[in-house]
Design a protein around this nucleic acid. Structure first.
Length: 573
RNA sequence: ACCCCGGUAGCUCAGCUGGAUAGAGCAGCGGACUUCUAAUCCGCAGGCCGCGCGUUCGAAUCGCGCCCGGGGUACCA
């Protein structure tokens, strides 16, 4: 089924084309959008004003001409010209009600699948081995995963690839440090934390001890040449880190199709540089192999260091090459923080020169920082992700215990987990991705107002109403009754529910989950108002059933939407 | 110095390809639980949309300049 907005947009566009044949109308959007104020009707078209200059006519006359040419549409009850030339459209209530009835039967809530099976590789999360995940990793993981889910829903074949940092110069220091500083007890207790401690200590020593530095480099070379002992250690580090990451991903309900870390491409790096050199893209400069991008006003990009080593640019190019050969993607999407913008502009430009024709997209987000400034492992002011999640769940649990004291402890804990984790995720997802986030506990853990629990609460209330209804009217199926939109609050809710396809599509197209989050929040608000002011179960026969249908449709919209954001919806909270 | 972001209510932020009186949440004040879950709802108050100029019938939104904050700028990722 086509969304109401798309049907009306088609109708309006056709009207303008028929009223002004042969004219170029592309300067203005001739579709419709929801009205800014419900007193203007349901949908509005602003094209007449935009076209006034081109058509050299008065906007109101243009609007009138379009309306005259439009013909009727079953969904439309009335059309009016207002102000300078707005065309305001009011929907036919019974058609709207009928549309909602159909919507209830549609699992996709009217959303098309523009992906058509095309492939998108999504690169997100990408933590580093031997470092615990901290709050800086949550944005890439949570935003990336929400985009992943949305694109799958829109019919794309998504390959979620966790490009973990499992290869690089840090392993020389780590191997050396491991042999000297290992504390077996803490390794037993918290392996990744211990690895990090070892690394930091080894790094510090390297700053003042040249012999140490050289030794670390030697260990790195041994690892790269396949020395069995160092390779075994490296594998151990990777394994320990991965199982730690896995725990967090499980709690966050995030999963990947493939985990090809940087090490996966280590044997392709020399080939990439050779190819760049053969094709004349890379040249030697100051002892390094460099691709100059002056024509794009970008600084040069080093693909092989003067010491012969490769860097992340080379790895990323090899990764693109691999992904194209393996998956033939329509697009490759990277979700990383803002600091990598220049890097990806360089990489994309070079990949293009190498013949890559896939669309490449860098979705960047603002860096997370603390009120006192940026954090770094070395300064030791990082907040571990696990701690954030635990804290969130603990706070949620204390509220669950208060509000549902008669519930079993396991149930309380399960709900607290869903609510706490949901709150943390939503705090990120409801914000414009590119805004800079200053981490504050109260904000990340908000459990009221515009927050995940607010949305989850609405779902839980509906589930509860639904159960009570089934209890009292076991033999009645509300779907046998028509939907009626008598109450203004009911109609307001209906007008929001109908907009689901646009919310998802826009959020995905713009890589902005906050668009979907805001939409879901509006639905919950409309529902909460409805719930608080209009009786359902006590309404008369027929009205009761119609309202139950509205509840059920609201529930499926919220559940589907929250699911696309990766947020769980328990039946009670 | 250059490049990329941001500056909207006391605080945290939305604001879609320019559109009608600029919206939420938190905090503040005042109301609503014998009823379908009060993690809720209703009401009040709160704004030279950083500053200036320009484009336009119309600018928080687009362009230019300036101020302030953040990030980046050849061998870390």
């Amino acid at each position: 089924m086509n969304s109401i907005e798309s049907q009306l947009s088609d109708w309006s566009a056709r009207a303008f084309r028929e009223a002004f044949p042969g004219e170029d109308l592309s300067v203005a959007s001739i579709g419709v959008s929801p009205t800014v104020d419900e007193s203007f009707g349901d949908y509005q078209c602003n094209a007449a004003m935009g076209l006034a200059r081109i058509l050299r006519k008065k906007p109101r006359d243009i609007a009138q001409a379009a309306i005259d040419a439009s013909g009727s549409h079953p969904l439309i009850a009335g059309v009016e010209i207002a102000g300078p030339g707005f065309i305001n459209i009011t929907l036919n209530d019974s058609e709207l009600a009928g549309y909602l009835e159909n919507l209830q039967a549609d699992k996709r809530l009217g959303t098309p699948q523009p992906g058509g099976g095309r492939t998108i590789v999504m690169d997100y999360s990408s933590p580093n081995v031997a470092k615990p995940m901290h709050i800086g990793h949550i944005r890439s993981t949570v935003i990336g995963n929400a985009l992943d889910r949305m694109y799958r829903f829109l019919g794309y074949r998504v390959i979620a690839d966790n490009h973990i940092g499992d290869w690089g110069t840090q392993f020389g220091l780590l191997i050396l440090g491991y042999r000297h500083f290992l504390d077996r007890d803490s390794m037993e207790r918290s392996p990744v934390e211990e690895l990090e401690r070892i690394y930091v200590k080894s790094y510090e020593r390297s700053q003042e001890d040249e012999a140490w530095r050289n030794q670390a480099r030697a260990e790195l070379v041994k690892l790269q040449k396949g020395d069995p002992e160092n390779v075994a250690l490296w594998e151990k580090f990777v394994g320990l880190s991965m199982s730690e990451f896995e725990k967090i991903y499980q709690r966050l309900d995030v999963s990947f199709d493939v985990v090809n870390g940087e090490s996966h491409y280590r044997d392709c790096l020399a080939g990439i540089v050779d190819e760049l050199e053969e094709k004349g893209h890379a040249v030697e400069s100051e002892g390094a192999m460099v691709v100059f991008l002056d024509d794009l006003k970008l600084p040069p990009c080093i693909v092989r260091k003067s010491d012969g080593g490769f860097n992340y640019a080379t790895t990323d190019l090899a990764t693109i090459r691999y992904r194209i050969e393996k998956y033939h993607p329509d697009a490759i999407v990277y979700v990383t923080d803002e600091r990598q913008q220049l890097h990806f502009r360089q990489i994309f430009a070079i990949a293009e020169r190498m013949g890559c024709s896939s669309r490449m997209e860098h979705v960047w987000f603002g860096l997370m920082r603390l009120p006192e400034g940026t954090f770094s492992t070395r300064e030791g002011n990082v907040i571990r992700l696990e701690r954030l999640l635990d804290e969130a769940v603990t706070r949620a649990l204390s509220i669950v215990r208060e509000t549902s004291p008669d519930m079993s402890a396991e149930k309380q804990e399960a709900i607290a987990e869903a609510v706490g984790i949901g709150a943390v995720k939503y705090a990120d997802l409801s914000q414009h991705p590119q805004s800079v986030v200053t981490f504050k506990w109260e904000k990340a853990l908000a459990l009221d107002g515009n927050s995940a629990p607010y949305l989850q609460y609405a779902c839980a209330r509906i589930a509860s109403v639904r159960d009570k209804y089934a209890e009292r009217h076991p033999d009645v199926d509300p779907s046998d009754y028509p939907v009626r939109l008598d109450h203004p609050m009911e109609r307001r809710l209906a007008m929001r529910l109908v907009r689901f396809p646009e919310a998802v599509t826009r959020a995905a197209n713009q890589f902005k989950p906050n668009i979907l989050a805001e939409y879901l929040y509006e639905i919950s608000q409309a529902y909460s108002t409805f719930y608080q002011n209009v009786p359902f179960l006590k309404a008369e026969d027929g009205v009761r059933e119609s309202r139950m249908r509205m509840c059920i449709l609201t529930e499926s919209t919220l559940r589907l939407g929250l699911n696309l954001l990766g947020i769980k919806t328990p039946d009670r909270i």
